[in-house]
Amino acid sequence: MLEIKNLNVSIGDRKILNDFNLTVQDGEVAAIMGPNGTGKSTLSYVIAGRKDYTVETGEVFLDGVNLLELEPDVRAAKGLFLAFQYPLEIPGVATLTFLKAALNAQRKQRGEEELSTPDFMKRVKQASDKLGIKSDMLKRALNVGFSGGEKKRMDILQMALLEPSFGILDETDSGLDIDALRVVAEGVNSLRSPKRGFLVITHYQRLLDYIVPDTVHVMAQGQIVRTGGKELALELEKSGYRDYVTEQAVA
């Protein structure tokens, strides 16, 4: 379960999250929608532990652990996964090497044994077959020269291997054509389980046709301003965000 309580975050003088509150239960898929510049990506980065932001007050609990006191790698080992809006290219690091290093770093952090190479390869093969990732792609440098769709599939592959208890998908639909979107969404849907929660951040309703949320939250000016069921996304698609944006935020 993810609980965000009274979170206030700023960069420099600019306030981005404003007394932000949100709870996502185990097994729940919550969507956050909202116009550009309302702090959606900031929210995901703050939860994952990026250092560019000042957390003024508030708490973020994952299964009862306060994440804000932890380094990003410890947060990951505690079960948090952030699928990036733009997964980074890492030249010179073979994808397989990276996957193994990440998996074993998390296991070590949790006091578990390192995976044997055959065991690791078996898991990678199973997960990558499902996502249509070919083995030669795994030998290439991580995300280098990958298409937008390939990068997103690679992020979902990482999520499948790392088996987090909570996944945040930050604008996962950006840069994807409809076929790639479908593959990525299927990948996410196959990871849905009663024990795993998701926070899906998007500004288009389209993604939510494929990853159907249990709840939809509308975010504006650093706060949740409205909460509803999946039908709220359809309503937003028709009316846009105009009702939720004040003149101040537009300026």
């Binding site: 994952a48 532990g49 990026r50 250092k51 380094e71 990003p72 790698d73 947060r75 990951a76 080992a77 952030l82 990036f84 997964p87 980074l88 890492i90 030249p91 010179g92 690091v93 990276f98 290093a101 990440a102 998996l103 770093a105 998390q106 952090q109 440098a141 990482q158 790392l162």
Partner: peptide, 27 residues
């Protein structure tokens, strides 16, 4: 950004840094 990406996947800072330095020189 690369460092944060690697950390967000579970690599401790020093390990993430070493991986990037090794890749930089090893190329």
């Amino acid at each position: 950004d690369q460092l944060f990406y690697l950390q967000a996947r579970g690599l401790p800072f020093a390990e993430a840094e070493s991986l990037l330095l090794d890749a930089f020189a090893g190329e």
